[in-house]
Design a protein around this nucleic acid. Sequence first.
DNA 1: TTTT
DNA 2: TTTT
Lengths: 149, 149, 149, 149
Amino acid sequence: MNKVILLGRLTRDPEMKNTTTGKAVTRFSLAVDRRFKNKDGQKEADFINIVVWGKQAEFAAQYLTKGSQISLSGRLEARSYEAQDGQRRYITEVVADEINFVSSGQKSSNAGAGFQQTSAPQSANNNNMSVMGLDEDFHLMADDDDIPF
Amino acid sequence: MNKVILLGRLTRDPEMKNTTTGKAVTRFSLAVDRRFKNKDGQKEADFINIVVWGKQAEFAAQYLTKGSQISLSGRLEARSYEAQDGQRRYITEVVADEINFVSSGQKSSNAGAGFQQTSAPQSANNNNMSVMGLDEDFHLMADDDDIPF
Amino acid sequence: MNKVILLGRLTRDPEMKNTTTGKAVTRFSLAVDRRFKNKDGQKEADFINIVVWGKQAEFAAQYLTKGSQISLSGRLEARSYEAQDGQRRYITEVVADEINFVSSGQKSSNAGAGFQQTSAPQSANNNNMSVMGLDEDFHLMADDDDIPF
Amino acid sequence: MNKVILLGRLTRDPEMKNTTTGKAVTRFSLAVDRRFKNKDGQKEADFINIVVWGKQAEFAAQYLTKGSQISLSGRLEARSYEAQDGQRRYITEVVADEINFVSSGQKSSNAGAGFQQTSAPQSANNNNMSVMGLDEDFHLMADDDDIPF
DNA sequence: TTTT
DNA sequence: TTTT
């Protein structure tokens, strides 16, 4: 069991790349407000690195922008890489497999983007709308290596 | 492990009662949108019964109203009771221990209620504000029966 | 967002059926221990109804038995049905989309069942083994109605 | 909303320290098995850094050892610190607020440790026993800074 | 109607 | 390196 559930806002526009095998990867940082203020009465946030793969990566790149408020679920992944100084560096990020749109980060409505977010939350029938269509990158399931038993 | 995480809107104003021992209990129903439309292209929702105890019950009763958008975490509880027809009836509800305010259900600002939610989500600096102060009903911890080992 | 994460034991063998459309559904009840004893010092449990669909339903029916300890994640679903007495009855159950095997409910090893659970947890390299291969019933994704935007 | 739920095993004995203000902090690394094997058919795990505060830190230090199988819930926290080379380094760890014991990492029973875990999981009446008594470090709640509204 |  |  390895589950992460977050609610927050993109700190910048997502960045999509393609792996050498042609698979899309989108990355962004999510600002997640802490429940409690710190000693100085300041509201703080945690900035969590998010990774999205495959078809969802394309949706994320297309529909999310800096300031978008989303909820997501995924799993924690720890990996290491060689830094420029030759040292091994360890980072942990969240691989999202489900992203839900909560509200736009844009003041002006995102015309043509697939969402019509209005300013009145209670009239918006697209709050909590799901941005993503799939619960993971399924075609991976085709080869045996992915069968977990 | 018994965790539930929900994001949705109150279908009506919360109702607070006091137990005979003087403890506050607040109940409401939360509409949680499904990710996928049904065969008829209709958006559906699940309506989940939420229970909140103690100090948080008071906060919930005070700050939440029909239409409030909240995220919450808690645990699933199954209980049975004797129905009017003498039969045993089984119900399962979510006992919330953490509630976060996402957006108001009110068009007009909730003056004096502790939140100043405006109608424009992107200008609201109190999105994701926490409504609740405690992570469970702690004074229960005082007596031995609550120690889990 | 609608997430449930549970860790518990099957109270009986799972029951698989097939819908009229030929889709497998497996149901069982999961006993989830409460963290705290009640006033009488008694350990209690919640008994949660679990539903599994599709390919996973078949796996669950095949590999899980009364007493199996599993962790699962899924979503809460509330539905109503007509009871025998003609009344509308409301029930909420957990639709599991990911099930992980933690330990067998059998004293004797489950020879031939795909798991070789030994009695020494620390030597068992198949603890937490995933029983299920898919994260939902994906072929649903094929038709437009399931696209959430 | 910031929730993490993990099921895994301690990779080493937990380490407890005391802050200058006299508060206990315990740290350990949790090996969380991945659901799917990698391309080479190898089972992999993520190694997640866990932090526990206050009274729970003491319990964790006392009852958990290398190999203990636990489930936990908590929140993701990202922080930065100055590395030896003067550079800012970013790390994210899980602050656990609820830990449940699933099985011991010890072959021999942990006599006197509060758990009597035997080597046969199905006979152990303390599976899923809760190690921790509190759901966070509550006395923090006493001062105003912690009130989230 | 409940598991270990 | 951070969002509202």
